[in-house]
């Protein structure tokens, strides 16, 4: 057992087959521990979203192993995987994925209720999450009654609600101005400081700056990492080029 919340071992992802196949990820090894905030950067098409969908159990890797809280995702059946995702993984999609016929607070409470949390408690947790992203006042609005940036925050609240230990966020600041974007980073940073493992995909250096570690992807490989160094010995642990 380890205190790694997320582990990827020799993970490869190939879409399609034969001449049309695309190697989206090649031989990725990655550990993210509790309390760690990792940002993933890289040019468009470098495999960032692919990395996140695999880590979130939304797709199966072509080869290699993925562990979430020491559970190998490859060994789970569909129901077990769905349960693990609801219980342990908060996911912010590049395109939000909210339910239009539900209000903000219902959207956020939904995964908790699906997981068997009594609805009053789920609602209370949802309100806490909405408050931490600064939109608890909009709790009873429907998705077409709030702005794009506010929808984005609902999506983030849904990912952080409850006790999930792994937060995966794909470009969660797309529609937000600088100050609101920084506000979201503060929320993610706070989750990490409270013991979650956070993986953020972003093309904004400004937001990656909030992370403990920044991975650079290129053509499906991790080509470099930047880690904050509090003392010079930390530097020695970085992979030498």
């Amino acid at each position: 057992m380890s205190d790694q919340v997320l582990q990827l071992r020799k993970v490869c992802m190939t879409y399609g087959n034969g001449a049309n196949s695309v190697g989206a990820l090649r031989d990725i090894n990655l550990d993210v521990s509790a309390g760690e905030f990792v940002a993933v950067m890289g040019p468009s098409g470098s495999g960032k979203s692919s990395l996140l969908t695999l880590a979130g159990g939304l797709e199966k890797a072509t080869s290699g192993d993925i562990y979430v809280e020491n559970t190998p995702l490859g060994a789970l059946n569909i129901n077990e995987l769905a349960r693990l995702r609801r219980r342990a993984i908060g996911y912010v999609f590049q395109d939000f994925n909210l339910v239009p016929s539900l209000t903000a607070v219902e959207n956020v409470a939904l995964p908790r209720e699906l997981d068997g949390v009594p609805s009053r408690k789920a609602r209370r947790q949802a309100m806490d999450a909405l408050r931490s992203v600064g939109i608890d006042k909009l709790a009873d609005r429907f998705m077409d009654q709030i702005s794009g940036g506010q929808r984005q925050r609902v999506a983030i609240a849904r990912a952080i609600v409850g006790q999930r230990r792994l937060i995966l966020a794909d470009e969660p600041t797309g529609a937000l101005d600088t100050a609101s974007g920084d506000g979201i980073m503060e929320v993610l940073r706070h989750r990490a400081d409270a013991g979650c493992a956070v993986v953020l995909v972003t093309h904004e250096a400004r937001h990656a700056g909030w992370a403990d570690r920044v991975l650079f992807l290129k053509d499906g490989r991790i080509v470099d990492q930047a880690a904050q160094s509090y003392d010079p010995t930390d530097l020695l642990e970085l992979p030498a080029n």
Partner: peptide, 15 residues
Amino acid sequence: QAQRTASMRNLQTYT
């Protein structure tokens, strides 16, 4: 690449 990593480390520190 080396430069970006170094600049990112600075950015992390400033942040």
